[in-house]
Amino acid sequence: MSGQVEAKLAALGITLPVAAAPVANYVPSVISGNQLWISGQVSVKDGVFLSGKLAGEADLEAGRAAARQCAINLMSQIKAALGDLDRVTRVVKLVAFVNSTPDFTDQPKVVNGASDLFVEVFGDVGRHARSAVGVSALPLNVSVEIDAVIEFA
């Protein structure tokens, strides 16, 4: 039987993908005490990279969708590490990197795609501290990469 968080995901029509394996010399997550530190998850859905530089090849809505997909991929890593999304007691922090042109300044609006989903799925537990940083390039030209710190019981 799925828990409350997975029921909420199902109600939203979201099926979590299999958690992505590392593509270099790192681990997908590390548990330290009651915190889960998740390595950066890129904007990939069903094997297709959501790519393009914001204010270049991608617009704000595409960026928000890419950030939302990063949140879904982060939830996959949470489930892989903890076994149950209901163990999450707080989404502590997101650090988001937005592939964008030098004159693009709406990184916070892009990253709301992830933040809004965490709050929608986890409620107040999903409210978090956050950084939204513009960068000149990301792996495979993806639009967004996000890492997270999660507190759990």
Rank of each mutant, 00 (worst) to 15 (best):
R68V: 04
Q77Y: 08
K53V: 14
F122D: 03
R68Q: 09
Q35V: 04
T101L: 02
D116E: 11
A58C: 15
N112C: 13
V42R: 13
T101R: 11
V144S: 07
V142D: 07
R68W: 04
L140P: 06
V119K: 14
Q41D: 04
I150T: 01
V18A: 15
A19C: 05
V98T: 12
L12C: 10
A11M: 09
V111T: 12
V18M: 13
P28E: 02
V27N: 04
V121N: 03
G63V: 14
I14Y: 04
E151V: 03
V88E: 03
P102N: 04
F122L: 01
A66G: 08
V42N: 11
F104T: 14
G13V: 06
A148F: 00
G63L: 13
L85C: 05
R127A: 06
V142R: 14
N73K: 11
T89P: 13
T105L: 12
P102W: 03
V44S: 09
P28I: 03
G123F: 01
A132T: 08
R68S: 09
A21D: 11
G123Y: 06
K53R: 14
E151W: 03
F152V: 09
L12T: 10
L94F: 06
A11L: 10
Q41K: 12
S32F: 08
L54M: 15
F152S: 01
M1P: 12
V144L: 09
